[in-house]
Design a protein around this nucleic acid. Structure first.
Lengths: 238, 238
DNA sequence: ACCACTAAATGAATGCCATTCATTTATGAT
DNA sequence: ATCATAAATGAATGGCATTCATTTAGTGGT
């Protein structure tokens, strides 16, 4: 406990509006409860999303977020407990963008396909959220939970045995999260450079893919793995 | 450009060893090139691993790393360009721990199985590295590249068409990385809590897994997905 | 009408963090 | 001997999330 100097412990010292304010900027609010509240979780979420869009996740700081809302950083903490909370809010917002509409309207395999591609595409732009989502209790993210419900129901109607439904979803989701990272990898990530001679099989495989493949490599791998998973998991149905 | 005060610009002021040193701590080194260098990338890597083992990734800071080596934080920057470099060194060290010995000694599917389980187990204790690895050019990580070479060669000998080898590896690796996160998730991550009534299919599936499953849920999902991938990808062989 | 309470803001302070830089000193090469 | 270089130091910078005492404005109770 350092307990050095304590803040604000000076008398009001009121700068009593005696000084002639010429045109002093947009008149910074002073302390105190505002007439109508400016912050809530919804506006924080949407400001965070805009900020991420403009400056990426490196630009998402509590200070920058507060600035974009014309508010002091400390004000945010009346509505979220931590920066992680902000990330959870963003995550749950994105979950609502994932397309589950094919469940119930298309054959189960096609529904899984559309869901998986959509899920990957949404989160490939938000990979820093993945470590957060992956360990997030579903209770804390209602939209995410709604997505799971749609998928669970789809798999059940397709004849998946009840006790394998969660494992199947987790397996698919793991693949999706891992694949989301790939999307953001640099194009030359597999260039062996000076090590080419010592890794002949790998080097040949990389070269062959570059010559043959027309799709983006991340898409080719995702398609390959997803189709393998769909047909492998499909064998579980009764 | 703040360009305020500049550092160290005082005369040597040498505390010429006149003061009687009673037993003054472990005699902090003063500046200047030491008789024999104490730091190199190998000792930094092993110190980082020890530190991670003791304090986790939150405890891995440049300051803590330097302290564990009895060195000033700035000294580290003579050997690595950034903290990210330290993470890359650690990652590549771990890659060497992944078991690829079954390639060439076992049937291809069994080799993939052992490799995948080993890979997941190693990195499930190091999930903060995953966002780094996933976008890391292979040239920067020789051990990782060696692992890819072993797997590539195994798949080629198993009859996988050259141009699908990389995609197959990427698909497997994506699944492995995603699954590594699952291992660290809290046990009750799927407890729908108060939302249970609004998510009947999901809730029933969770309950059913809890009743039926004996394995840890993350292991069940990994096993399910891995077997699906192995059999799905196996169909590519000629 | 008054009063107590509470919600929502401020801004100052804390203690971290990675990274940079001028400087010092020992060593090996010319 | 001289000199460039490698490898250390410690001070400084500018960030970061978070905490806290304080201020103010509404709300509900008597």
């Amino acid at each position: 406990m350092p307990a050095a100097a304590r803040p604000n412990t000076k008398p009001p010292v009121a700068p009593r509006d005696a000084a002639p304010r010429v045109a002093a900027a947009p008149a910074k609010r002073r302390a105190g409860r505002p007439a109508t509240a400016v912050l809530d979780q919804a506006v924080i979420t949407s400001a965070a999303l805009q900020l991420i869009g403009k400056s990426g996740y490196d630009g998402l700081t509590m200070a920058a977020l507060a600035r974009s809302l014309n508010v002091a950083p400390s004000a945010l903490y009346n509505h979220v407990a931590s920066k992680r909370d902000v990330l959870v809010l963003v995550e749950d917002h994105l979950a609502a963008l994932v397309d589950v509409s094919a469940f119930g309207a298309e054959p189960w395999d096609e529904a899984v396909r559309r869901w998986a591609w959509s899920y990957r595409d949404v989160f490939s732009k938000h990979t820093p959220l993945i470590p957060v989502i992956a360990v997030l209790p579903v209770t804390d993210a209602p939209q995410t939970l709604a997505m799971y419900e749609a998928v669970s129901q789809g798999l059940r109607e397709a004849g998946f045995p009840e006790e394998r439904i969660i494992s199947s979803i987790v397996a698919l989701e793991s693949f999706i999260f891992g694949s989301a990272f790939d999307v953001t990898a640099p194009a030359d990530i597999f260039d062996p450079g000076s090590m080419a001679e010592s890794t002949p099989s790998f080097t040949a495989a990389v070269r062959s893919l570059a010559e043959q493949g027309h799709e983006k490599p991340a898409d080719a791998a995702f398609s390959l793995g997803l189709e393998a998973l769909i047909s492998g998991l499909g064998a579980l149905r009764r």
